[in-house]
Simulated scan of single mutants.
Amino acid sequence: MTVPARIQRRRTKGWRLPVNAVIVSRPSRWGNLCKVALMEEMGYDDPHAAAADNFRLWLAGSRSDAPNDEADQRRERILTDLHLLRGKDLACTCPPGRACHGDYLIYRANMPAAELDAWIATVRERVNRQRIAAHDKPLYAPA
């Protein structure tokens, strides 16, 4: 089995998504909520890296930049279906060699199944603790 890779999605005539690849760019269900342009406006030296890091923190359960039900439910949809990306190449518009949230999706999706399940359980606990601290209803029932 080959190691999954991130490929650059093109919008040029004749470009086709390779077999065994999944689009993870912004408008997709796997897209990064954090915009590179916003990171650029905020003055980050490497806005791609800042946006990718923001996604990593958000997917790991941080609610600091998006403390709302919509973001929590979107995170849950990604966590629930992350296993579907296992073994797939991921296509995003980010240029090769630049930081991309797709790199993190590849890393997490291809973890051993038991390790991925444990990580997802930890993320869900983290989200619940933050929701309770913010006087919101927990998203997940206690185990």
Rank of each mutant, 00 (worst) to 15 (best):
T2I: 10
V3I: 15
V3T: 15
A5H: 13
R6E: 03
R6T: 08
I7S: 05
I7M: 10
I7F: 06
R9E: 09
R11F: 13
R11G: 14
G14L: 01
W15F: 07
W15K: 07
W15M: 06
N20M: 11
I23N: 13
V24D: 00
R26N: 04
P27W: 08
R29L: 07
C34V: 09
K35E: 14
V36P: 00
V36D: 00
L38D: 11
E40M: 07
E41N: 09
M42R: 15
P47D: 03
A49K: 13
A50Y: 05
A51N: 03
A52L: 07
D53A: 12
F55G: 00
F55R: 00
F55E: 00
L57P: 00
W58P: 02
W58Y: 06
L59Q: 01
S62A: 01
S62P: 04
D65W: 09
P67Y: 03
P67V: 04
P67E: 04
D69S: 13
E70S: 13
R74I: 05
R74Q: 10
R74M: 09
R75M: 03
E76D: 11
I78F: 02
L79R: 06
L79Q: 02
T80W: 05
T80R: 14
D81P: 10
L85D: 04
R86D: 08
K88S: 05
L90N: 10
C92F: 09
T93Y: 12
C94H: 06
P96Q: 15
R98Y: 14
A99C: 06
D103G: 11
D103R: 11
L105N: 03
L105Y: 02
L105K: 02
L105W: 02
Y107A: 15
N110W: 09
M111H: 09
A113K: 15
A114L: 14
E115M: 15
E115S: 14
L116I: 09
D117I: 10
A118H: 11
W119L: 10
T122N: 10
T122M: 12
V123S: 03
Q130C: 09
R131E: 06
I132R: 10
A133L: 11
A133R: 11
A134H: 08
L139I: 07
A141R: 14
